[in-house]
């Protein structure tokens, strides 16, 4: 091991140790002390295998000790976001902006899907994949569109893998994604409290607290959750750089992910990517607590239903008929 490498490792450890102390910090310190030798070793060992710079290693080290997003103060959120942005620069040479926009008061997001209007063009799916930086290798998609026989209202009877000219006469199309249930079974299933419902109704995942056990996937009655098997391979020029900590930021391998109603967009007043892309206007999105909103108009004036209503999950996603 070169003396220069040793010095670098030493300064990293000193940096970390000099932070103010708390119980968490103490544990951190203890583990560092225990790992001091091995860390120095690791620094030299890892540099042989992967050419990570000392700065990057430091950031990665600090990332290990962050809290669950819900327990972070705004300061801590800002710190981790800065670290993640710098890591993106180090690792992929990407300039991303990761936001931590909080929910707005008196906002509860709701969604409606017009099964009379959807014609199965699937532009929503491509827009979603692009916006949320979904893995192109495994072809992960948050949205599924089913081609349905008339009279059927259960997507499991439909064809989710059609590829022919649409719309086919006498068929209709039904989109399925995360329904952001008020009473979400996935949240109860999570053993690490890595998934929860935000005050504006969006069910989110803290990708760093998720251990990838997939219990939530088993608990979801709507097949709304996706497991990421890979590192999330996205062509560099197609990466959406405006990101959110709970949304479309780069997910580590082996985590659960899902539709977040495009939290990075909707928290700033924009429509989700699927709504903006829909060529037929079958998708309606808005604030359920605003009596003048489009979504409230649909709920008031249209025949609406929700999928598997009887199981009491209270999805905030309604289907409606013209």
């Amino acid at each position: 091991m070169s003396s220069q490498k040793k010095d670098e490792a030493k300064t990293i450890i000193e940096d970390v140790l000099e932070k103010p102390s708390s119980r968490r910090m103490f544990l951190k310190g203890a583990s560092i002390a225990a790992a001091a030798g091995s860390a120095a070793l690791a620094a030299s060992y890892m540099s042989a295998a992967d050419p990570a710079s000392a700065g990057e290693l430091k950031l990665r080290w600090q990332e290990y000790f962050k809290k669950n997003y819900r327990l972070m103060s705004q300061e801590e959120k800002d710190e981790t976001v800065t670290r993640l942005e710098r890591l993106a620069k180090f690792q992929d040479n990407m300039d991303v902006q990761i936001g931590t926009e909080p929910p707005t008061e008196k906002v509860l997001f709701g969604y409606a899907f017009n099964i009379t209007r959807c014609e199965g063009f699937m532009e929503c799916v491509t827009a979603c994949v692009k916006e949320n930086n979904l893995d192109r290798k495994t072809n992960t998609q948050y949205i599924r569109i089913f081609e349905m026989e008339p009279g059927q209202l259960d997507p499991s009877t439909g064809d989710g893998q059609y590829y022919h000219k649409v719309p086919v006469d006498d068929k209709f199309y039904m989109g399925v994604q995360c329904f952001h249930c008020e009473n979400a079974p996935c949240i109860k299933a999570c053993p690490t409290k890595a998934t929860w419902k935000e005050p504006d109704g969006i069910v989110v995942v803290d990708y760093n607290w998720c251990i990838g056990c997939r219990y939530c996937q088993a608990a979801c009655p709507y097949y709304g959750r996706r497991f990421n098997w890979g590192k999330g391979e996205v062509p560099k020029e197609e990466i959406t750089t405006k990101q959110h900590y709970l949304g479309n930021r780069k997910r580590p391998m082996g985590k659960m992910e899902k539709c977040t109603f495009c939290i990075q967009r909707t928290r700033k007043g924009k429509l989700p990517a699927c709504v903006e892309a829909c060529p037929t206007g079958a998708r309606v999105f808005g604030n359920l607590l605003d009596p003048d909103s489009e979504i409230r108009y649909v709920l008031k004036h249209k025949k609406v239903f929700r999928m598997k209503e009887e199981i009491g999950t209270q999805p905030k996603f309604w289907y409606f008929i013209d």
């Binding site: 926009e101 707005t104 008061e105 008196k106 906002v107 509860l108 709701g110 008020e182 009473n183 700033k268 007043g269 924009k270 604030n287 359920l288 607590l289 605003d290 009596p291 003048d292 909103s293 409230r296 709920l299 008031k300 009491g312 209270q314 905030k316």
Partner: peptide
Amino acid sequence: AVASEKSLLEEIKGINEPFDSRSVKQVR
């Protein structure tokens, strides 16, 4: 249990306080 099964839609429909969409920051 019975109340919460019906309540979300009813609850939502009961909210008639106007919402100022300018309270959402960063709208372009």
